[in-house]
């Protein structure tokens, strides 16, 4: 709050106003995927928090301290009070930092979103960690789990310092992340998902690891509405492979059909695993994405 009041930018990723608004927001997972450690998320089973949940019949062996004596006095039958168990949720972000994300501010937008989701996790006293995947075959850059508001600077510094470039496909990046990651919760996938690999396998692995997928596809305007015509040679920025396209202008209709089909397929894959999917443009206003789109989609509140 000191930083915001002095009008100095706390981070280059998000302005202070956005930070202030994000600190008040909470992630809304569909599933209660929490860890054993105490936290602020109610566990699915009963717990020992102060928040009443339900009654049940007393059975032999139950701790008599949880018998509701007022009910017993009135009904002359012992009932045990049940309380919600509040557990910790892990919020992990996987940022695709490959070369394909280096177009039209895609990578910057991914870092901003990773910072936003991480901030919401920290402010909700969750364990927040982050992975950045650059080069294939190398270990992803890793921000160890941290929690609490005090780790904001650590999170932002990590994200600010990472450099883009590389050829790590998102499907392999997820597998590499899961080799290291432990804990249930939410995984925020920030990528363009333009990969030749199979996306079903990493999503299955995330689901099996107890992570609810928040997938955000970030595409550049040149990918949404490519302006190409005539005979051109397209060069893949990651692999350097080329494809010769003739009369490219006439293929744009088919291109759009395929792009929308990919978007649709990603949405289905995520929903089938109780996850969520969102496709945005790198040119979409950040405020609109964070405070309008995410709320409308029910990702945060």
């Amino acid at each position: 709050m000191e930083l915001l009041s002095t009008q100095a930018q706390f981070t280059s990723l998000l302005d202070n106003d956005a930070l202030a608004r994000l600190e008040k927001m909470r992630l809304v997972p569909r599933r209660r995927l929490t860890n054993r450690s105490r936290g602020e998320h109610h566990a699915a089973k009963g717990g020992t928090s102060t928040e009443f949940a339900d009654y049940r019949d007393y059975v032999a062996g139950d701790d008599v301290r949880y018998v509701d004596w007022n009910i017993f006095a009135r009904l002359e039958r012992p009932y045990v009070k049940l309380y919600r168990h509040e557990e910790e949720m892990h919020v992990v972000s996987i940022v695709d930092a490959s070369s394909s994300m280096q177009f039209d501010g895609k990578f910057e937008r991914a870092k901003q979103l990773a910072a936003a989701f991480g901030l919401m996790g920290l402010m909700n006293v969750e364990r927040v960690s982050s992975f950045v995947c650059n080069h294939s075959g190398r270990e992803p850059l890793f921000l160890p789990p941290c929690t609490g508001r005090v780790n904001r600077r650590r999170l932002f510094d990590f994200l600010e310092k990472i450099q883009g470039g590389g050829d790590f496909p998102i499907d392999l990046a997820v597998e590499a992340v899961l080799h290291r990651h432990r804990g249930r919760g939410i995984v925020v996938l920030l990528s363009d998902f333009l990969t030749f690999g199979d996306l079903e396998r990493p999503l299955n692995m995330l689901f099996s690891a107890g992570l609810e997928v928040f997938a955000v596809q970030i595409l550049a305007p040149s990918e949404l509405d490519p302006e190409v015509a005539g005979d051109i040679r397209l060069v893949d920025c990651e692999s350097g492979h080329t494809v010769d396209v003739s009369s490219a202008g006439d293929l744009l209709g088919i291109y759009q059909e395929h792009r929308l089909a990919l978007e649709e397929e990603l949405g289905i894959l995520c929903r089938q695993r109780s996850g969520r999917f969102l496709s945005i443009s790198s040119r979409d206003p950040l405020e609109w994405v964070l405070f309008d789109l995410l709320r409308r989609k029910g990702w945060a509140r």
């Binding site: 070369s99 394909s100 994300m101 280096q102 177009f103 895609k106 363009d192 333009l194 990969t195 030749f196 550049a220 040149s222 990918e223 490519p226 190409v228 005539g230 005979d231 051109i232 040679r233 397209l234 060069v235 893949d236 920025c237 990651e238 692999s239 492979h241 080329t242 494809v243 010769d244 396209v245 293929l251 088919i254 291109y255 395929h258 792009r259 990919l262």
Partner: peptide, 16 residues
């Protein structure tokens, strides 16, 4: 052919 670098050929490959 003019060369045009793009993020990924994945979509264009499927198009072709």
């Amino acid at each position: 052919r003019p060369r045009l670098e793009i993020p990924s050929l994945a979509l264009w490959r499927s198009v072709l």
